[in-house]
Design a protein around this nucleic acid. Structure first.
Lengths: 164, 164
DNA sequence: CTACAATAATTGTTGCTGCAACTACTGGAG
DNA sequence: CTCCAGTAGTTGCAGCAACAATTATTGTAG
């Protein structure tokens, strides 16, 4: 087995990615696609709820008083501000959330979970959680779950990566 | 520390996901979002090429004769058939690919990489690969890269998960 | 107090995406 | 040979997303 590039000695600026990392990258993309498509389909067909709606419900459920600033919520569900405005519009029409003013800054608004929204979340959480387990969590043994969590979390840290 | 559920003895059907797996799941989503957004923005701003276009170019470049059936290509770039039709339409208008008939089955069509397409890929691959390294690959040390690849790949296998 | 840059949210516009329906073609059953 | 279910690809349609511009509000500098 000829060594292609000794670990840690790859020339700076060379746009090459070794086999391990490329395999990890491709598997990462493939897995994400498969899981999110499956979760989305299952939630929609079995609970008649679009996945982004579910994400909003969860974010609000977890927040104190079941309410969150539009902006924060956009960050939480990985949406653009405009996208969130429309999403909340639809959910408000469906009675799952309400907008209430943010005290102390009349520009701001809270999205607030309604009782109907809370009930809807309760009714659909099972479907989603089963999906997450089936397509993701249960495919990990305990050791791998811990390891995967550690690695992915470390990759999210700002300082992650080589000193450059 | 009270044990919530001894590993491997969680009751069947309980829709609960332990902390490690939940953390891994959330980090997985967050990382995917960050990386894909960053890659997409960089490729678009620095190379003026939408990420899906790049994916098509790569798939074709890697295929024998730089050609691939529409259907296969759709699978490769994780697109629906109709989405791929439109995508190839646009790329064909831009001169990066052509359609040629599939010999032996007049329903079928190849998408074929043009010289311009090959050149465009060559010109833009650096930007993309740098991004993949910066936002993903270089955040892994060698051991973690191998481990991550192993775990993610195993999760893609059909038989993955509990015997159930 | 007034002007004005910055911020929160929304709206106008445009483009992309998928589902379902459709066309064209294939290959096997009768 | 003819029929017809199945397949490859495309198109009609509708929904969803982001970007840029807009509105309303804030707080800071002069």
């Amino acid at each position: 087995m000829p060594k292609k590039s000794a670990p840690g000695t790859r020339k700076r600026g060379t746009p090459r990615i070794d086999a391990d990392r490329l395999a990890a990258w491709r598997a990462f993309l493939e897995l994400h696609h498969r899981v999110t498509v499956a979760l989305s389909e299952e939630l929609e067909s079995e609970a008649d709820l679009p996945l982004p709606w579910y994400d909003v419900l969860v974010q609000l459920e977890e927040a104190p008083d079941g309410r969150r600033r539009m902006q924060d919520l956009a960050d939480g569900v990985l949406f653009s501000p405009s996208g969130l405005t429309r999403l909340v519009d639809r959910m408000e029409r469906a009675g799952l959330v309400t907008r209430t003013p943010y005290p102390g800054d009349r520009r701001g608004a809270y999205a607030v979970l309604t009782d109907a929204g809370r009930a809807r979340l309760k009714a659909t959480a099972g479907v989603h959680l089963r999906g997450v387990r089936e397509h993701f969590a249960d495919r990990l043994d305990d050791a791998d779950a811990a390891t995967l969590g550690r690695i992915l979390t470390s990759m999210l840290e700002p300082g992650s990566g080589p000193p450059s």
